[in-house]
Structures are given as structure tokens and as C-alpha cells.
Design a protein around this nucleic acid. Structure first.
Length: 475
RNA sequence: GGCCUGAUGGCGGAGCGGUUACGCACCGGAUUGCAAAUCCGUGAAGCCCGGUUCGACUCCGGGUCAGGCCUCCA
């Protein structure tokens, strides 16, 4: 079984060959921690979490190194810190913690490494120095700027030439730039702004240098896969390549920067781009209060990662129903023991086809049906094990099925419901249908559905309750 | 202006040059004291115009529409 991924640089689907199968490296651009992450920020997190899980299944759990940076130096952070009268690390630690907690709610594993800019200043300074030494950058008025014209391959990833860009350029040209597209590697800090000493004066890193420097320092060049949102192709990733490669030229080496590039498509909200001016920015932190994290995760995986995804109330409702169905099956067969087993080839196969998660859902459905229709216990055990193993690769279906349907019920209500259900089971055993119906009605009033079975009864919160929690109101 | 995506049934969303995606919803049947769940089954598609082909949703050309990037942005 071989992974094939669509490589942005080559613009085609290619077979994936890691440089070293015992040390597969993946880097994804992470958050700038000055505020809450919105649902669009969560898409790459979930998508590349599936890739991380898949790579681990393919190459072994300890043979994959996944790094996702935390940008904790940035003008927006400075502004937030200034506004609140605190040091920047008060802001960055706070929001990094919230970010990690929120992403965990979406079922995302912690990356192997989470390098922070403030912990990698030395690496950044070293890379800038190397780029300078190689003649690909120049220092001017406290800034160090990358000289784009010195790097012939500039524009390869985004397929644009410097000439094209200049034609339609809206870039503001700073007086110290030789070419309008030269970008900052290091910039001076004003008094009061966070600053680190450097050969070019006290300052801080530019936006793009952190990723290439942390990749070189933490993973080593080249890395196998570099991922991120589609919008990062230019200029961010283009600039990363320029920096990473030009830093190496000192030794006459050019081992490459990233061997495969993957970019996820954009998420829209009810057909519109999410933006503050439209007031439709949905924060993950708020969403998880209203919708189970697993539903959000599944919704984000419902379309292929490269395509667009429109976030709508309908999408959430449909995703909730789909998961309800599968968890319903798992609850029905809760007594069937599950075997610990590796994910079946079928599920890995579809994911190996450039992370085809829609087909993976079809596979999940097939496995659930196999469990429902299994002829005997042995078949049920096998089917359930396969379903759970397939879910594990996707980061789905690992929760307690009973809890799935009872989320948000407090202990008092739960005790009350359990008592009523027990009472009703007794009435049914006695074939006392009027009482049984009366109790069903009482439970109905509590927003509870009772499901009878040969061995007793189970219950769940009614779907209507979920609606009331806001599912149909444009989340 | 330059670069780049996408357009599939009521909705979401894949694969595929000739055969069922899958899911949600709907309908019919089985089952059920009632109900739910489940199972079986039916119906439903490929933006427009050309071209290639024995045959195109699938390939090629053109068009239309929608969206993204080129400036902080997943």
C-alpha cells in the first residue's frame, strides 16, 4: 500500500516516498496565538491530523515526526499585549493553551513537536546570517531583507514570475527595498516592543523566517511533507522555500526544502468568506459549546481536503445524523467485545489516495452495515473491531456510544430518566401497555426517546433537543 | 491585469470513458403492543456549446457562473 498525494509544487498526484521510512517528517503551519482560532483555522488541523494518523499507521507510530509551530511573536500579539497592559507571553501562553484544548476537542492529536518562535531565536539568527553570507539578503536601516532577484527559482511554488507580480502589484514599496517583493527577515523593534539582540540591531524576526528556521533546526532539511492552507502558498511558503534553500547554498548544498507540498482548500460560511466585517467568524471555542467536537471534525472531513467546504447548519445537522447512526450501531452491539486490531486495508487504501476522506466515510458505512448484518458472534466481533479500527485512523467513533446519546444530561436528570425507564420496562414485562405508554409520554416530555429491545431498553436525548441547541441556526 | 480552483440527484459529496459511490432527507416493504432503531427495496444527477470516441458525468477546446490568491490570513 502506497500513499499518493497531490503535490502543489508539481501540480499532480504523485507517489509518496519518504526520505527515511523510519523518520518521516511533516510540518504544518500553526497558529499565531493572539486570539481564538476560528473554524477555518481548524480545517488544516483536522486534515493533517488524519495525515499524521495515516502516516503512523503506514510507517509506525514512532517513525513519524509531526511539527506544528506556534507563532508567539507578531504585531497582533504586541497590540493585544499593549491593549491589555501585559507582557506578550501572558497573551501567547493563554491562547496557546486554549488552542490546544480546543483542537483536542476536535480529536486532533498533539503534534510531536510544537516549536515556538521565542524558543528558536538563535536558529532564526543563524539562518538569516547564512542567507546573508550567501549573498541572498542585505541589511538596510536595521532591517535584513531577502533579495528575491538573487533566487532564480522564486515563484516556482505559486507559479508566478516576478514580472507578473510587479505588473499587478499592490505591494507598498518601502524605501529600503531593492525590489518591491523583497521581504523582511529581520526587522527593528521600536522602544517598548519585544526585541532580541542581533548583529543588525535589536529587533524581531519577520513572518516567514520562523518556519524555515524552525524546520531546519527541529526537523532538518529537507522535510518530507509541508502542509498548510491554500492561502499560504504565496507568499508564505514561497518565501520559506527561498529562505530554506538560500541558507544552504553556503556549503554548495541544496538538498531541497520540502519534498511534498499539501494545501487544504478554503472554508466558507453559508457561501461567504469568513470575515470580521461580515460578522460571520465562527470560533471553534464557541462552536464546541454547541456541537460535539466529533461532529465538527467529521463535518470538516466530509469533503475532500483540497476542495472548498461550505460551513452550514445543514452540514452540521447531516453530519450529526450520520454519526448518530454509527454510534447507534455501536451502542446496539456494545456487549460485543472488540478486538484490538490494525486498520483494515480498505480504509487505508482510500486514505492513501490523497486522503480521500469522503470515501473513507463510505467505508465506515459499509463496516457499520457489516456489523448490523453479521450472522453470528464471531462475525460481529470481527466487524466491530474493523469498524473501530477504521474509525481510529480518522479520529472518529472512539467515544463511549452510551455517552454519545446522553451528552449534557446532568446526574439528577439521568437518575430520573433511568428510574422511569426501569419502571417502564417492568410495565412492559407485565404487558401493562397503558402504563408503558404513559411513561413513554412522561419521558417524551423530558425530551427523551426510549428504544425497546429484547433485553431491556435504552434511551437518548431527542433530536429536537439538539436542534434547540442551535444546530439549525446557522452554526 | 496576472495566477489558481470549482460547477454532480432535494441536500452534502466521491470514483469512473461503457456496470450501485456513500451519507442525509423522502417513498414502499419487513419487523415492532406503541415508538425508535435495523434490514430489504424504489425513485433521483452530472452548468452551456462544440470536438474526440462505437460510446463521455468522466478526455479536449470555448463559454457562462461561483470562489480563492496576488496585502495580515487556514
Amino acid at each position: 500500500m502506497k500513499l499518493h498525494i497531490y503535490d502543489t509544487l508539481r501540480r499532480e498526484k504523485v507517489g509518496f516516498e519518504p526520505q527515511n521510512p523510519e523518520r518521516v517528517t511533516l510540518y504544518v503551519c500553526g497558529p499565531t496565538v493572539y486570539s481564538f482560532a476560528h473554524i477555518g483555522n481548524a480545517r488544516p488541523v483536522v486534515v493533517f491530523d488524519v495525515l499524521f494518523r495515516l502516516l503512523r499507521a503506514l510507517y509506525g507510530e514512532h517513525h513519524v515526526i509531526y511539527a506544528r509551530n506556534i507563532t508567539d511573536v507578531d504585531d497582533k500579539i504586541n497590540k493585544a499585549a499593549f491593549d491589555q497592559g501585559v507582557e506578550i507571553d501572558v497573551i501567547t501562553n493563554h491562547f496557546a493553551d486554549i488552542y490546544n484544548a480546543d483542537m483536542a476537542t476536535l480529536g486532533a492529536l498533539r503534534p510531536t513537536l510544537e516549536p515556538r518562535v521565542t524558543h528558536n531565536i538563535d536558529a532564526i539568527l543563524a539562518q538569516i546570517a547564512a542567507i546573508l553570507a550567501n549573498g541572498h539578503a542585505y541589511a538596510e536601516q536595521g532591517h535584513v531583507l531577502f533579495d528575491v532577484e538573487s533566487f532564480k527559482a522564486y515563484g516556482a511554488l505559486s507559479r508566478r514570475s516576478l514580472d507578473d507580480m510587479i505588473a499587478g502589484s499592490r505591494v507598498e514599496v518601502a524605501p529600503y527595498k531593492r525590489n518591491p517583493h523583497d521581504f523582511v527577515l529581520w526587522k527593528p523593534s521600536k522602544p517598548g516592543e519585544p526585541a532580541w539582540d542581533s548583529p543588525w540591531g535589536p529587533g524581531r524576526p519577520g513572518w516567514h523566517i520562523e518556519c524555515s528556521a524552525m524546520i531546519e533546526a527541529n526537523l532538518g532539511l529537507p522535510i518530507d511533507i509541508h502542509g498548510g492552507g491554500h492561502d499560504l502558498i504565496f507568499p508564505h511558503h514561497e518565501n520559506e522555500i527561498a529562505q530554506g534553500l538560500c541558507a544552504q547554498h553556503a556549503h554548495g548544498q541544496d538538498s531541497g526544502y520540502a519534498r511534498y507540498w499539501m494545501h487544504n482548500g478554503f472554508l466558507t460560511f453559508e457561501g461567504d468568506k469568513m470575515s470580521k466585517s461580515l460578522g460571520n467568524v465562527k470560533l471553534v471555542h464557541d462552536l464546541i459549546e454547541q456541537v460535539p467536537g466529533e461532529v465538527i471534525r467529521a463535518a470538516l472531513l466530509s469533503a475532500h481536503y483540497r476542495g472548498p467546504l461550505d460551513w452550514t447548519g445543514e452540514l452540521i445537522a447531516q453530519t450529526q445524523s450520520r454519526l448518530d447512526g454509527m454510534y447507534g450501531t455501536l451502542r446496539k452491539f456494545a456487549a460485543v467485545p472488540g478486538r484490538d486490531e490494525a486498520a483494515a486495508p480498505a480504509i487505508l487504501e482510500v486514505l492513501c489516495d490523497d486522503l480521500n476522506t469522503p470515501r473513507a466515510f463510505a467505508e465506515l458505512s459499509a463496516l457499520a452495515k457489516a456489523l448490523e448484518t453479521a450472522a453470528d458472534d464471531e462475525a460481529r466481533i470481527a466487524a466491530k473491531s474493523r469498524l473501530l479500527a477504521a474509525g481510529r485512523v480518522l479520529g472518529l467513533l472512539q467515544g463511549d456510544p452510551e455517552a454519545w446519546f446522553r451528552g449534557g444530561v446532568d446526574e439528577d436528570l439521568k437518575a430520573k430518566i433511568d428510574a422511569l425507564v426501569a419502571e417502564r420496562v417492568a410495565a412492559r414485562t407485565a404487558k401493562n401497555w397503558p402504563d408503558a405508554d404513559r411513561i413513554r409520554k412522561a419521558l417524551d416530555d423530558l425530551g427523551v426517546d426510549v428504544m425497546d429491545s429484547a433485553t431491556g431498553a435504552t434511551w437518548k436525548l431527542k433530536a429536537a433537543e439538539t436542534e434547540d441547541r442551535g444546530l439549525s441556526h446557522g452554526l
